[in-house]
Design a binder for these strands. Structure first.
Lengths: 137, 137
DNA sequence: ATAAATGCAAAACTTTTGCACCCGA
DNA sequence: TCGGGTGCAAAAGTTTTGCATTTAT
């Protein structure tokens, strides 16, 4: 018997959830993902979406971002990187051209007597669209 | 008549809440503040704590930090600075000796076609106490 | 006197969970 | 077949809100 306990089974639901998240250009909420996925799989439940997002996070396939608003947001890219939060439309997206500075972690350790595993930075402001919209006034 | 509409009234509750927050060495949750304040003012309600924290935030007296866990945390210091989150005991505190690098904001603007108002960084790891506790094993 | 603030409780909202059934390996 | 996954609905947990009353100015 080579069946092992505690294995992760592949399901249509989880595949679709991951595909949907990976193809999003921003970092959506569980509810947004639920709405998208429902178009293709109308009977899926929100509980399943939450359970699968949690499982994918535990497997290291995605990252859960919990900041900015009441909702958690999910990032299909598990690599550490910086994020931008639009204060106007609430969208959350990746920062380009600004690599994570690991030297900072060492500096913080020395100055604060802590052990740093990693850090992340959040930039707040107006995204491209909201910036342009404001300029039109 | 020099009474104006929309003014902010001074109350014992708000004073106590602000005093409690300012004297905390970490960044507590609304519920923690509620528990502290109740010792001195047993009839205060959690709703009042939330309302006052919101008002103080709107007035720019404090900062609301919404990351790391389900709860919002509040920071008696409205100045922008970096934070440390202990992944073991969940405490959130200020980072010392690591000033906010405003140059980064300009770099992000250039690379991402956005308008950055400010940024904040979160360092995750073990705080002094949890680090020492681990070393004892 | 007037409107802001409070206390209480109910409501709103996001996320989790129990359970019976289903389905992938 | 076996145990992980799903759907549904109820529950949990944080934050907000309606309302009558109190209180600061």
């Amino acid at each position: 018997m080579d069946k092992k306990k505690g294995f992760v089974r592949k399901t249509k639901q989880r595949d679709l959830i991951l595909k949907t998240l990976r193809s999003a250009d921003t970092h959506p909420t569980a509810d947004w993902i639920y709405e998208q996925v429902k178009k293709e799989m109308p009977n899926i439940s929100l509980g399943t979406v939450y359970r699968n997002l949690g499982k994918l996070r535990d497997l290291g396939e995605i990252t859960e971002l919990s900041f900015g608003s009441k909702y958690s947001r999910f990032d299909g890219n598990p690599e550490n990187h910086y994020h931008f939060v639009c204060t106007e439309c609430e969208k959350v997206m990746d920062i380009k051209g600004c690599p994570v500075d690991k030297e900072l972690d060492r500096q913080v350790e020395l100055n604060n007597d802590v052990e740093v595993a990693f850090h992340t930075s959040l930039f707040y402001g107006l995204c491209k669209d909201c910036k342009n919209k404001k300029e039109q006034d």
